[in-house]
Design a binder for these strands. Structure first.
Length: 374
DNA sequence: TCTGGAGGCTACGTGTATAG
DNA sequence: CTATACACGTAGCCTCCAGA
């Protein structure tokens, strides 16, 4: 229902399936013109929330951090970010080779990466599948623990084609995010570092101009933070992370990070990302000449929880707000009309018999509050 | 149910032709 | 020479639905 008239702010109820839900104060939220501009400055579109708490919490996150790219302002792109949709699986398929060779780079697809993991799955061609032959084959732990292991793609592409599209980007790594996603998936915004490679259209490159790579590592951690994902899943309506959505997610600018922030974040990002020799250039750009770090799932869960807690603090959240993001029912009861990371919780209950992320992130939060983490 | 690739549509930018 | 119209190519976006 839409009513028009003069007012300082407008009131909304979304996801209502029954008339009586219009009267439920837990579902009702207000937005002023200024809040429209803060949340969606480029498109001025209306954000959609399931509950009052989601609306208020999202507004709070945007008060802490501006949108990634504000197209209205000359200084609205502090990272100097260029998005790169490098190769289209249909339109560019004539450029693809089905075997590695001299001067060829692997073509990375969305299914091959996960957060902080550029070796999540190889592509296995199942010729019995007429329409969708390329299927992901998850990397085994033994393969993950081998720093010489790289995932095998479905296709390869000439380095020249990649270089032509990279333009003046000279680093032998990129940040990329999975553009096919959903708010109902385990995680919505998934970013990975990738080595020199071609990117299929399901992986979008993020190329920042900032020279200080340790700050770029912070941008990357920001993109994978659970508080950032919480906003993403509130704003993604369909199954595509389009540029206009990504530009309007709340990310800290480079100068927001203090020396203490860098000392906390960068070593953790390095350890999570540099697990294989194929990202040696990334490690070197971060000033690290040592060997890759051992891929240890428990250790990685701990490091990611510490980063999630760190970013929750940077966004200015309270402990209860972080608890709400992890599980609204934990704070407001099972019937509260919102859901955040239900699938993550369900999958962890299946795999670990507990909601592990919730336990680890809250423990890391408490440790940070007590100054117990270096 | 979750995931994500393929294909197609649309808007936009660029180059070229034509009129004034 | 400038303004406008039009064609064309493609980046970006959206829908469909296969596969596990």
């Amino acid at each position: 229902m839409l009513t028009l008239g003069q007012a300082a702010q407008a009131e909304f109820v979304c996801f209502a399936t029954r008339v009586e839900q219009l009267a439920d104060p837990r579902r009702r939220f207000a937005l002023s013109p200024e809040e429209f501009r803060r949340l969606n400055p480029n498109t001025l579109t209306c954000p959609v929330f399931r509950s009052t708490r989601d609306a208020e919490l999202t507004k709070k996150l945007y008060r802490a951090a501006p949108v990634l790219i504000d197209e209205r302002r000359p200084d609205g792109n502090p990272w100097g970010i260029r998005f790169l949709a490098m190769l289209h699986m249909s339109n560019d398929s004539h450029l693809f080779a089905d075997a590695p060779g001299a001067g060829r780079l692997p073509l990375y697809e969305g299914k091959m990466v996960q957060a902080y993991d550029h070796r999540a799955a190889s592509v296995e061609v199942n010729t019995a599948n007429i329409v969708r032959a390329g299927q992901p084959k998850s990397t085994l732990l033994s393969e993950h623990r081998n720093p010489s292991f790289s995932v095998r793609p479905q296709s390869w592409i000439d380095r020249k084609e990649v270089n032509d599209r990279l333009g003046d980007w000279r680093s032998a790594w990129m940040i990329a995010f999975k553009s096919v996603t959903s708010p109902s998936n385990e995680r919505t915004f998934i970013a990975s570092l990738v080595p020199e490679c071609g990117l299929a259209n399901s992986l979008i490159g993020i190329l920042p101009l900032v020279n200080d790579i340790s700050r770029v590592a912070c941008l990357f951690a920001n993109l994978n933070a659970i508080a950032f994902d919480y906003v993403a899943r509130n704003k993604v309506g369909g199954v595509n992370l389009n540029f206009f959505l990504v530009k309007q997610l709340p990310a800290f600018p480079p100068d927001r990070y203090t020396a203490a922030d860098l000392a906390y974040i960068v070593p953790r990002v390095l350890e999570l990302t540099y697990t294989a020799h194929d990202l040696a250039a990334w490690a070197q750009d971060l000033g690290y000449d040592g060997s890759p770090f051992t891929f240890d799932p428990d250790r990685r869960a701990q490091l990611r929880a510490e980063l999630d807690a760190c970013y929750a603090r940077l966004y200015g959240l309270t402990r209860d707000e972080l608890r709400y993001i992890l599980d609204p029912a934990d704070v407001l009861g099972a019937d509260y009309p919102s859901e955040t990371f239900r699938v993550l919780e369900k999958n962890e209950e299946r795999d670990f018999s507990e909601y592990r992320t919730q336990r680890l992130v809250l423990a890391a939060w408490d440790a940070l509050e007590q100054g117990a983490l270096p």
